[in-house]
């Protein structure tokens, strides 16, 4: 499944009501570490098929979502299952470490 761009309009449906677990990548274009993680996140989105959903939140454009999830450092990756946060991790890391959280 390709990576979804998340915002206020689609967050409820794509994340909170999702039947599959969702990885949210909170990022910004001016953040070097986020930039380095972009291909890793894309790869997770492509390789995991329909078993998981991958969404990106650009914190510049969606400050309220970043605030709601108390993101204070980017990149932050949050795992949501059945509408609830089950895990999160911060910073550059290999794909496997993120997949472990699911």
């Amino acid at each position: 499944m390709s990576v979804i761009t998340l915002n206020n309009e689609n967050f409820e449906q794509e994340v909170l009501q999702s039947r599959t677990p969702v990885i949210i990548d909170f990022w910004a274009s001016w953040c070097g570490p986020c930039r380095m993680m972009a291909p890793v996140i894309d790869e997770i989105g492509e390789s995991m098929g329909a078993s998981i959903k991958v969404g990106k939140v650009n914190v510049d454009e969606n400050q309220d979502l970043a605030e709601k999830y108390e993101v204070m450092s980017i990149p932050t990756f949050v795992i949501i299952k059945d509408g609830k946060e089950t895990a999160r991790t911060i910073g550059v890391q290999p794909k496997e470490e993120i997949l472990k959280l699911i």
């Binding site: 953040c31 070097g32 986020c34 914190v59 970043a66 204070m72 450092s73 932050t76 911060i90």
Partner: peptide, 17 residues
């Protein structure tokens, strides 16, 4: 408090403050 107020990257995280 790492990631909850402690940061190692001003340029990355200043935005949140």
């Amino acid at each position: 408090f790492e990631g909850k107020g402690i940061s190692y990257c001003a340029i990355c995280d200043a935005f949140f403050y």
